[in-house]
Amino acid sequence: MRWEKNLILLAAAGVFFVLTSILAGRGLISRFVLLTMTQVCIYIILALGLNLITGFTGQLSIGHAGFMSIGAYGAGFIMKTFDVQAGPTLIFFIPFALIFGVLVAAAFGVLLGLPTLRLRGDYLAIATIGFGEIVRIVLLNTKALGGASGMPLKQFVGWGAAYWLMLLSVVLIYNFVNSSHGRACIAIRENEIAAETMGINTTKYKVMAFAIGAGLAGLAGGIYANHMYMIQPSTFNFLKSFEILVMVVLGGLGSITGCILGAIVMTVMNNALGIFPEIRMIIVSVLLVTMMIFRPNGLMGTTELRLPFRRGPFGTKGDMTNGG
């Protein structure tokens, strides 16, 4: 039963990919739409990571762009150091660069996760803002990484790789959240003291959540660096962290499908409204305010969007409380 369901989902994902590739190849999907779709994938990966930290584990983090920039510069550094050119070596270098970015970002996630043992709520949020800014300022002053003018790169990662890596991240987060580790994280969010009383090693799970969330941000950064031609410290500023947080909150803290939806809505809206620069921010703010009035828990709350299977693909065992 489970196998069939997973196969159907995988087939659907494959069909969607083949369809978009054919359409893009024939010029029916413009480059701009394809770029938007790739950016959606990047932001979904970012939102998934932050959702694990903030939505499922309940640790407010506003430094996600910091992890993203570490991944981006990590991957960019590898591509620059080995002077990677288009050719067969890409099969080796692209995964190497991306994994390097993920590992460095995850290591910083652990580093930042450790002080969270002592900090809670607002204090943690301030600490993470500080972290994000420190990363940005360090990059700004590191001449070897291009300093303020940034690092120009080639485009080696396209829509296809971004799409499959995004799906891989969704599967990873879905399985993590529905494992005993994930339930431990949710327990920490609901009541840390109670969770500890029940024998959950809260330190371990908080650090774990930070490491995975940061690793995913690093992956997104690596894709961004290899797709967008140019990375510079000012791209990964406080506002970027905030943008990712808005996606997660808009979609629903603690909902995987919710944060995916949030990432899609925010990214597509940002790009689509590019033609009305004067009123773009007004429309976005009005939408957010309306959202918070009528759906204070986000589009999805903590519930998941289900496909019409006998038992939904999301939340089968865990089946979280219905937030309606």
């Binding site: 701009f32 770029l35 938007t36 950016q39 940034g150 961004y224 967008m228 031609y229 140019m230 990375i231 510079q232 000012s234 791209t235 790009n271 590019g274």
Partner: peptide, 8 residues
């Protein structure tokens, strides 16, 4: 912003 210039 450089990234947004790429999009534009």
């Amino acid at each position: 912003e450089a990234g947004e210039a790429t999009s534009a």
